[in-house]
Amino acid sequence: MERVFFTLGALFAFAGVAAGAFGAHSLKSRLNTEMLLVFEVGVRYQMYHAFALIAAAWVQAKWPSALGTCGAWFFVAGILLFSGSLYLMSLSGLRWLGAITPLGGVAFLVGWVCLALAVWRG
């Protein structure tokens, strides 16, 4: 699983850099300041958790466990729900998508707890 998580982390980081560049260069003139900031928060958290996936891959290589695997999948879910909802909300203007964002935040928190427990018990 460590290869899967490392690969996903690298791909999410790649996509985060691309999204950041897209936001800075293409969206600056198209979105209002508030929605541009929302988009940037999505990019920031995607990047943080892309690196968290790479850390989870290392944890799985050193201390393999179901908790480490769960933590990594929670990071994936968090990126999709948290960052994805912010991207969609900022691009579409559909504010109700903001109701999905906290689910991604909870997934991030659960992922970090799982990762910490995996190392602690490892």
Rank of each mutant, 00 (worst) to 15 (best):
F82A: 01
V106D: 05
E40K: 15
E2Q: 15
N32E: 14
A99V: 14
W96K: 04
A107P: 05
V43D: 10
I100N: 12
A50L: 11
L109G: 10
A57G: 13
W120P: 03
A13S: 09
L11D: 00
R3G: 07
R95S: 13
V106H: 06
L53M: 09
A55C: 15
T69D: 01
M35V: 01
P102Q: 12
L109C: 11
A56C: 15
R95A: 15
I54L: 00
R3T: 13
V113N: 04
K28G: 09
F14D: 03
E40R: 15
A99E: 08
W96I: 07
Q60E: 14
V59S: 07
A15M: 08
V17W: 03
G122F: 06
G105L: 02
L27R: 04
G93S: 12
L97R: 10
F5P: 05
A52M: 13
F75Q: 07
G16F: 03
F108Y: 14
A13Y: 01
F75M: 11
T33S: 14
S85V: 02
G105K: 13
W120S: 08
Q46A: 13
I54K: 00
S83N: 10
E2K: 09
V43Q: 03
M1W: 02
T101G: 01
G84L: 00
L109Q: 04
V106C: 05
S83D: 14
A52L: 09
W58Y: 02
F5R: 00
G23N: 00
G98M: 04
V113T: 11
A55Y: 09
R121M: 07
V110I: 14
A15S: 04
L115T: 04
F82P: 12
C114R: 08
L8M: 02
L115S: 02
G104R: 04
A66R: 15
W58H: 05
L103D: 12
E40L: 12
G23I: 06
I54A: 13
A24F: 00
R30M: 09
F12D: 07
V113A: 01
L67K: 14
F22G: 01
V119T: 15
F51C: 15
S85T: 01
K62L: 09
L67P: 10
L31H: 10
T7S: 15
F51S: 13
R121S: 10
Y45G: 08
G105D: 12
S83L: 13
P102D: 11
L27K: 10
V110A: 12
V4Y: 13
C114I: 11
R95Q: 15
A24W: 08
F75H: 06
N32A: 12
V106Y: 03
T69S: 11
F14P: 04
L80H: 05
A107K: 10
A10H: 02
G104L: 14
H25N: 12
A50S: 09
A116P: 08
A15H: 00
M1F: 13
L103A: 15
S85P: 03
G104M: 06
G111V: 04
A13W: 02
S29V: 06
L91Q: 05
F74K: 01
L91W: 02
W96P: 07
G20V: 09
W96A: 10
I79D: 00
G84Q: 06
L53A: 05
W120N: 07
G93T: 10
Q60V: 10
A10C: 08
C70L: 09
E34D: 13
A116E: 12
